[in-house]
Design a protein around this nucleic acid. Sequence first.
DNA 1: AATGATACTCGGC
DNA 2: TTACGGCCGAGTATCATT
Length: 364
Amino acid sequence: MEAWREPQERIVLLVDLDYFYAQCEEIRHPELKGKPVAVCIFSGRTENSGAVSTSNYQARKLGIRSGLPIIAAKRMASQDTVFLRADMDYYEAVSTRIMSLLRTFSPVMEQASVDEAYLEFRGISYGEAAERGRELKEAVLRTEGLTCSIGIGPNKLIAKMAAGRSKPDGLTVVRPEETDAFLSALPAGDLFGVGKVTETRLKEMGIETVAQLRSAPLSKLQQTFGTGMGLWLYNASRGVDDSPVAEKRREQYGRIVTLKEDTRDRDILIAEASRLVPEITSMVEGDRQLFKTVSFIGILEDLSIRTKNRTLQDYTSSAEVIIQIIPSLVDSFLSEHGGKIRRLGIKVSNLTEMKQQKSLMDFG
DNA sequence: AATGATACTCGGC
DNA sequence: TTACGGCCGAGTATCATT
């Protein structure tokens, strides 16, 4: 008879590269070190239209943070603040190298974004996991010159929140028996996954802290937030998160641009949207993917985002198919939404792997 | 009732 | 002195199919 074997406890480690784009710039331009740096995405509409993507800690001290309009950031800036144009290709290249390095620490890894990855360990202690974390930080610093923050916990949620605790260049371990105390004191809004809207609705229910959230009955949470979100809140407040550490396949490819001026001119919208198509289809084809859904994304003057989708009968990777669909999406968008459009985008989703083309050589 | 597909919004980085 | 990007995945509502 097979003896019962206790499943090995899993330990999840989150690596978060500190102020990633700005730190990448400090590496290739060492003279930036010590100065406030804001890495920006300029829309091209006017000289300073656009937003701050990432800033280093000196810039954050001035109030210059992600998402801030560049024009506002420049008002807050000091004399020596440096504003740089984001260079995504460079950051992607650095990221790819680091992700390969991280993979050597555990085969079970999930890249969560360009600057974040979860690693899973089994059969080691929390002390040993912390040691892996220190080795990992040392390796990233030695090979790329970058600092990162690390969170270690019994699941992704706790690992993520632990990492947030000691930024930058930190390492925080939260053991299973410590999770309740770790979470209890926090405002409910600090739970990763609870945004502004959910936080406000929780406050209306009289819930301000995670401890208070924990005492709310599941039924009440589900009644207020829906089955899924309600259950998620119930579990998250208890530090419970069973989501696996697993590489996810990409689900969409898209491009968005800001128009030179706001418009609802059908021909301009169609032309601008169509210009984005080749870049999208070349990415899709490069990854040997096919798509079935095409979306038109419009951002209105008030920055609200609206979309129109069309799902096809069959999978395709054809640019022509998208271009044929765009006019009808634009028409339906315009008929449903008044007001001018400030930015627009196209995305494709509902992806599947392209079947390997069988060559003639394979016959016979 | 359960399942799956679709259309759309929200929010993190 | 409220100015404003370009991505991505998660989540919800709704409808069709069984």
